[in-house]
Write a protein that binds this DNA or RNA. Structure first.
Lengths: 247, 247
DNA sequence: TCTTCAATGTGTAAAAAGTACACAATTGGT
DNA sequence: ACCAATTGTGTACTTTTTACACATTGAAGA
């Protein structure tokens, strides 16, 4: 049967497109952007890095860090570029979340965007120049944004809530050395609910991904906690064990 | 502090873009397509619906069902339209997976695509006209396809493997009435490994999403199994209970 | 109709993971 | 020296997951 269909194909070669370039030239084209939801963590609150919208219709509103996709640029590369240009950071955690394509999402007409989620360590990060157009916002207290960016943010937040329970991503938001309390505060801020302290610690202890750096917190007005760092090497080696399918 | 930044904004109104339409006109545009990975299940094998590529460079290779995105069409709608046009089916399960943007993924030049995963019941589905360009392929035995479609298929298959363990999606691939054996065969085909029969049944029994229709299989050369149907209503009501975050 | 075959249908014990909960130890501040 | 606040730890209970065996049913064929 396979032979039969192949033979049929061979007799119908006239239907085949010989010049793919000409074909693609006939394709409709749309403006495509990448928007980055850049999460940070400070003062026990989940933050998102926003820029003031430069559209008059959105006067006073904030928007995600976004840009057009370059001519022969991968979407991932565009997202990295946006982060580099805006924050000066390299090697940040970045993941594509999904596309948003409502025809009226941009007041200037049809623009489709691909949303990325990024996790960065606010301490490492000094906004390139002191840029009054860029600001870290508390995610929990945002209610509206430019474009459909509030919807995108909400979606990415949910995505992160789910993701962080299957992958140890939180470390990207913390300083190199952190206490278990800070780690728990981070999880509570992202998930927006309280966790049991002992069970939380037990869980992370059982994963064996924390390295005791033999230091303790200072500047706390009570018994200081031990500091740990994340064992990225061990994580990379045993990824499959924790997250199952490589996905 | 918020007041301060707002005041500054107000003094800089001259920087604001007054005409978003003109702005968007300056954006680069790219050809954008939607590709659907249409899964089916037949003869205990996971199948994917493919169409013969009409590009000469891919002579003999198969590709996913795809099309351009219409002028003011949402991506989701484009995916539904593709399925409707190709298979005549409405109300199919469909979910956006992710975008693929390698600059060389299309021999005709830069084309970005958004991949969708669709699950359909092969029995319900009669290919609109008997279309020799469309064919159900065994996923496990595919090794190459046109464009980067094999990569997309592989990614969507992994996505489905993960998804099916958190959401009861498998029912979309089965006839209305099915036996537990068929359900298990489906899971084994998707996950590509054997499952314990008793534990599998126990798990589904405990979910309480199966309605006993008081019928049994026929045409089996041994003791026939009971037939069940999926309780979509109950699932919709208790979604949160099973899948946690609505995501 | 009796036997054989190939599946269905069911239960239990053990292990692992998750949940709830309390108290002693340490540090800074007074 | 004491107090306040938080760290660090263990145990019992519940739930979920895993491993595993045997009687039952219906079809097919002798």
């Amino acid at each position: 049967m396979k032979n039969k269909t192949i033979r049929m194909e061979e007799t119908n070669r006239s239907h085949l497109v010989q010049d793919p370039v000409k074909l693609v030239e006939t394709y409709p084209k749309v403006p495509l952007t990448v928007d980055c939801v850049v999460f940070g963590f400070e003062e026990n609150e989940l933050k998102v890095l926003l820029i003031r919208s430069d559209l008059a219709v959105f006067d006073g509103l904030w928007s995600l860090l976004g840009d057009n996709v370059g001519d022969n640029e991968e979407l991932d590369d565009a997202a990295y570029r946006i982060l580099r240009e805006r924050t000066g950071m390299e090697d940040v955690y970045l993941d594509q979340v999904r596309s948003f394509s409502h025809p009226a999402r941009h007041p200037g007409g049809r623009v489709i965007t691909v949303a990325y989620c990024s996790l960065i360590n606010i301490q490492h990060h000094q906004l390139k120049k002191i840029d009054h157009e860029l600001h870290w916002h508390n995610v929990a207290s945002l209610t509206q944004m430019a474009f459909d960016h509030f919807e995108i943010l909400t979606h990415c937040h949910k995505w992160l809530q789910k993701r962080i329970q299957e992958h140890p991503l939180g470390f990207n938001l913390l300083p190199d050395k952190f206490s278990l309390r800070e780690l728990q505060n981070l999880y509570e801020a992202i998930l927006n609910h309280q966790l049991d302290r002992r069970n939380f610690r037990k869980k992370f202890a059982s994963m064996g991904l924390l390295i005791d750096v033999n230091e303790i917190e200072n500047d706390v007005p009570h018994r200081p906690g031990k500091l740990y760092k994340f064992d990225f090497e061990k994580y990379e080696k045993n990824k499959r064990k924790w997250i199952g399918v490589d996905f």
